[in-house]
Design a protein around this nucleic acid. Sequence first.
DNA 1: TTAAATAATAGTAATCATTACTATTATTAA
DNA 2: TTAATAATAGTAATGATTACTATTATTTAA
Lengths: 135, 135
Amino acid sequence: MARRYSAQKEIIGEALARLDHPTAAEVYEEVRRNLPQISLGTVYRNLSLMAEEGELLRLSFPEAPDRFDPNVYEHYHASCVCCGRIFDTDGTVGSGLVGEIDRAVEACTGVRVESRVMIFSGVCAACQSATPPGK
Amino acid sequence: MARRYSAQKEIIGEALARLDHPTAAEVYEEVRRNLPQISLGTVYRNLSLMAEEGELLRLSFPEAPDRFDPNVYEHYHASCVCCGRIFDTDGTVGSGLVGEIDRAVEACTGVRVESRVMIFSGVCAACQSATPPGK
DNA sequence: TTAAATAATAGTAATCATTACTATTATTAA
DNA sequence: TTAATAATAGTAATGATTACTATTATTTAA
């Protein structure tokens, strides 16, 4: 087995798996518990490298810091406006519907769609039951 | 007719109509031609106020400054990866398809979708003909 | 194995978009 | 016509992210 060059990179990857769609700052806080001398720059650099190499996804939300996701299959995200949690979609959204939207966009803009960013916002199941609609 | 309080705000609105999905900095440059002493802060403040009042849309793109759009009807955007231009969709995208996606997202995440950001990227018609597929 | 070459690090400075602040000027109202 | 209010220009501050730099760790090859 080849020697790993950087322990930091591996520990960052492990922290990412433990956290839920964290920001770089959240990864930094988590990694610091094992590696107190790590710098935020190292976290950013490794996260960016891993994103380039396809080992993780960098998610961009409006008016908010980027988040990182170790699930690299094609999926989308829905965030809860009450609790802030971020939920992953599964393959059912991508199958068919996204292609249909792409074609509709192409029909009216002329742009041959190659990729897309889709972010959904609303109220998650837990917050829905915490705040009943009658209230 | 009531006096307008701020000439700046009106001139910003006019610049917006003249430009194509501009950033705040681009609005600033345009407005400066008529109002050389205007400050970037005034442009930002008025654009933000107008967005709050529903007079325009603030568009957020990943890794890029926000852009502003005087078209306030519900529509989406496709940007060309070659020339950078941004194209508006018309009502055909929103009708039906978006509701279907919302329902699919709700089915697999539990989030009752209230709003969404969708940004499409690809090659526009002009750039497609400029760079024929055979090449 | 060890010395030169290479890669990664910690720490800090810089950047960029945006907002906040402040003293001043313009507008409105009494 | 003056006091109260709103908006401005200019500048400073903020927050996320990247860039830089001197140092340390790893690899390579003699």
